[in-house]
Design a protein around this nucleic acid. Structure first.
Length: 565
RNA sequence: UGGGGUGUCGCCAAGCGGUAAGGCACGGGACUUUGACUCCCGCAUCCGUAGGUUCGAAUCCUGCCACCCCAGCCA
């Protein structure tokens, strides 16, 4: 897509590096496999992937699995699938942070020998106490000046499994009075007797992110390591590790603002809570901002990339209106989705002057702007269904659709006139009796006759019952954005409670109506525009003869809007 | 005076000393066998704020204000 959208400051940085002599570009996406890929993490994939492509470089996928307590293969597989579906090819290869555990260990030994790391016996709470506060410096660990030999011996025994979890750590020896908390002798290895999803029981000590990440980047030859803003403070430590170990090719960390979207939650912790608490039907529930969820909701990779492109990349914290994301699918689907007819909330219409048993066959275009997409046939008999909303017994103001004594065009068929309304026991109209103007048949001589409104319909005799799942946003309008929710997390329980209270519990509605036979057997993930109803996608739950469609986005209904005011 | 960041239209976001791009949203009009789509047109005398430098500043300098991140043996 041609883009007149905002530039990307990271490209400027890479341009400068190239001008300064850098000869290649290599990026990576390093997720921890502890959840499903969502739109927020997709931004990171996209940024790193796009930079590699733009500069003819390689892109790696690397699972950052340095904490066996939180990771699993289910998530590895799921994330890979989502990245494949998006079409982001990791031509630099797929790796695991755990592939480098041997190297990490080796370098740790090197740091000890250089006098840049030491084994600390402080208990976790004592380490916290001696770290100081944001405004006061910390104090040196009593174990800080341990000799190299003793450190080597202790570290070796940590690895051998001689000590229990939490009893000791390996710390980088930097500066306990640094104003940057990350530099106050951070732990770089901890003891964790836990089976790793990838290395099994080979290790009982695991490197910390701040130590392992720069090593992983350096070993893979990464040149530009793009991550989110909260790691800015970690960059000095990242560079410290690279320089202390002495890597020749130094990767460079660049930070960008994460993606926030109104009425959407992207913190993995909260998403997990929705799944585990059964607030949604799973990680692929269409209300979820996961890639699998968005896919089931009808988003296409093209629409998602377009959205990320338009939202832009910058360093200012921001919340993008979800309307922009919807605009992007709407635009994509508007071009490619075939048009078809469905009725979600049906009311029966009997065509009084239609000869009993007569069946007409009408031709419907698949797309008004793309004749090459062809057309399909629709049968029509004496009884049809129209949308209940398309009829009003006592319409206020300008109402172009069907009303008593009024005329309306049935899309692709005839103009009908409402002669009589049958009222059901509940007081609502239950059936409409109309007469057909046979001379107005679409495509015929008389089809030029204009009436104010045109509505969609399905043939009662041949339409197939279908289920329509209408999904709303996960957060109500009052809860403006993810930030509102993330701000609640002070205490785990209070945050959790308040978050689930905020979840939009009315966000899934199931309607039962009809679709025309031609699309009843649509393959999962096939898109349609059901005319004014909006864009729909065939759900994977669809079974033979039992179509299920999810709403992607509705069309604007300016009449409905005017009515509200 | 802890440190690190960020502040440009309702929401994103360009701009890098020469006199405010673009997208979404919104408003108006044209078109229309769905009031959608599409197409036109409009939409910041102003860049957090107060000063300063300059012929000239959103862009440079200084002070202030606001918001975000950091005290995990998480990532």
């Amino acid at each position: 897509m041609e883009n007149t959208y905002a530039g990307n400051f990271i490209h400027d940085i890479v341009d400068q590096d190239i001008a300064a002599g850098k000869t290649r570009v290599h990026t990576r996406f390093p997720p921890e496999p502890n959840g499903y890929l969502h739109i927020g993490s997709l931004k990171a994939v996209w940024i790193n992937y796009t930079i590699a492509k733009k500069y003819g470089g390689k892109f790696n996928l690397r699972f950052d699995d340095t904490n066996p307590a939180k990771e699993s293969d289910e998530f590895v597989v799921a994330m890979k699938d989502s990245i494949h579906w998006m079409g982001f090819e990791y031509d630099g290869g797929m790796f695991f942070g755990s592939d480098y555990f041997d190297k990490c260990y080796e370098y740790a030994v090197l740091l000890i020998k250089k006098g840049l790391a030491f084994v600390c016996d402080l208990a976790p709470e004592d380490m916290r106490k001696t770290r100081g506060t944001l405004k006061t410096p910390g104090v040196n660990s009593p174990y800080r000046e341990r000799g190299v030999e003793e450190n080597l011996d202790l570290f070796g025994r940590m690895r051998a499994g001689e000590f229990p979890d939490g009893s000791r750590v390996l710390r980088a020896k930097i500066d306990m009075s640094s104003p940057n908390m990350n530099m106050r002798d951070p732990a770089i290895y901890r003891i964790l007797h836990k089976t790793h999803h990838h290395t099994g029981d080979k290790w009982c000590i695991y490197p910390m992110y701040d130590y392992a990440h720069p090593i992983q980047d350096a070993i893979e030859g990464i040149t530009h390591s793009c991550c989110s803003l909260e790691f800015e403070d970690h960059r000095p430590l990242y560079d410290w590790v690279i320089n202390s170990i002495g890597f020749e090719d130094k990767p460079r960390q660049i930070e960008f603002a994460r993606l926030n979207i109104t009425r959407t939650v992207t913190g993995k912790r909260y998403l997990r809570q929705l799944v585990e608490g059964k607030f949604v039907d799973g990680w692929d529930d269409p209300r979820m901002p996961t890639i699998v969820g968005l896919r089931r909701r009808g988003y296409t990779p093209e629409a998602l990339v377009d959205f990320l492109t338009r939202a832009g990349v910058a360093k200012a914290n921001s919340v993008v209106d979800i309307g922009l994301m919807e605009h992007c699918v709407r635009e994509d689907l508007g071009k490619h989705a075939p048009r078809a007819m469905a009725v979600i909330d049906p009311i029966k219409v009997v065509l009084a002057n239609w000869e009993d048993g007569k069946v007409d066959e009408l031709t419907m275009e698949n797309h008004p702007d793309h004749p090459e997409m062809g057309e399909h046939k629709v049968k029509m008999g004496r009884e049809i269904y129209i949308e209940r909303d398309d009829f009003m017994i006592d319409p206020p103001g300008k109402f172009f659709r069907l009303k008593p004594g009024g005329e309306v065009r049935l899309k692709g068929a005839y103009i009908i006139k409402c002669e009589n309304v049958v009222t059901g026991e509940d007081g609502r109209p239950s059936e409409l009796h109309c007469t057909v103007d046979f001379s107005s048949r679409s495509g015929s001589e008389g089809s030029g006759r204009k009436v104010k409104g045109t509505i969609h319909w399905v043939d009662a005799a041949t339409a197939i019952p279908a289920e329509f799942r209408l999904y709303d946003y996960m957060l109500s309008e009052e809860t403006e954005d993810a930030g509102d929710v993330d701000g609640l997390e002070e205490t785990e329980d209070a945050g959790a409670k308040e978050f689930t209270d905020n979840f939009n519990h009315q966000s899934k509605i199931v309607a039962r109506g009809f679709v025309e036979p031609a699309i009843a057997g649509a393959a999962p993930l096939t898109h349609y525009q059901f005319l004014r109803l909006g864009y729909f996608v065939a759900d994977p739950d669809t079974a033979p003869g039992k179509p299920v469609f999810n709403r992607v986005v509705g069309l604007k209904d300016t009449y409905a809007k005017a009515k509200e005011q």
